[in-house]
Design a protein around this nucleic acid. Structure first.
Lengths: 157, 157
DNA sequence: CCTATTTGTTTGCACTGCATACAATCCCAT
DNA sequence: ATGGGATTGTATGCAGTGCAAACAAATAGG
């Protein structure tokens, strides 16, 4: 019993265009999605104790690097819309990791700051992230990591 | 304040380590997530008319390539658990794009097949995917695409 | 001053991921 | 052959994310 008839078709339909775009393994987006899924799962395992998600850590990290940042600015840096940003910040605020403060210069904006508990949690998170990064990088040389990041950046910039 | 005393030994024996792991821009997983998000958004835009998600297209594609495939096999190829696979197949079945059939060789398994409507939809989807792929690939040379796929595969394989 | 824009908020919906529990079926060792 | 364990599918529930629409408060600009 033959399993891979699809290869045969690919060979026999070289030139004329009937909509055949090859195998799913050749779709770049397919590999991006699988790689993202693998990262997501390992990240989740690494952060089960801390009960933090990728987004939540990213938000805390950015707030730490940019104290007083607005929700809009934060959302744009992480490519999230306002509603999604809201729910994440609500969760972090409910856990007392960050606080909102009316911006003195622009009454529409909320200025975001980490609480001391938020800073402590971020420090923990960074240790876990280092583990996670080592897991990702373990299969690459430094040069390959550099290449990968450079190629990925071209997609999202 | 220190929470993870187990790290103390490692820290004090080797050169001192205050937990600083650099900027978020240097985290590989960060770029994978952003690139995935960019792909996800463009895919969603491309498929608004067809009302299909990445997963749904992947499932239909795999069922077309492997008629009679079981849900477990499908889930393993796409790295989805049984419950997630169920909901996706339920949706596709409700739209009459595929059907379940008791496997004659193993009574536990469901054999999955595309319906004629499913095949027609998949043909449409492949056209849209080609557009989507061109959008991704437009910023790379063929060699860079090859490199990117090869590096990503190392993460999810 | 008046209007358009920006920012935040709320609500609601869809998709995904995962845990748990259960039923049917199969596999294997006794 | 039979009983116990493993596999597969199913159902339910919950959390996180993404997004659209509508509204309110504040700002910006003519």
């Amino acid at each position: 019993m033959r399993v891979r008839d699809d290869d045969l078709d690919a060979v026999t339909t070289i030139d004329h265009d009937d909509g055949d775009i090859g195998e799913i393994k050749d779709i770049v987006g397919f590999h991006i999605r699988l790689a993202h899924g693998a990262c997501y799962r390992h990240f989740t395992e690494t952060f089960t104790e801390l009960e933090l998600t990728q987004k939540q850590v990213s938000v805390m990290w950015l707030v730490a690097d940019h104290p007083g940042i607005s929700q809009i600015d934060l959302g744009q840096r992480l490519r999230m819309d306002r509603a999604t940003t809201m729910t994440i910040i609500n969760r972090l605020q409910a856990r007392h990791f960050l606080r909102r403060e009316k911006s003195p210069t622009d009454g529409r904006k909320q200025a975001l700051y980490l609480t001391p508990q938020g800073e402590a949690m971020l420090a923990e998170a960074k240790l876990a992230i280092r583990e996670h990064e080592n897991w990702v990088k373990s299969r690459f040389t430094d040069a390959e990591v550099k290449t990968l990041v450079e190629l990925l950046a071209r997609i999202h910039e």
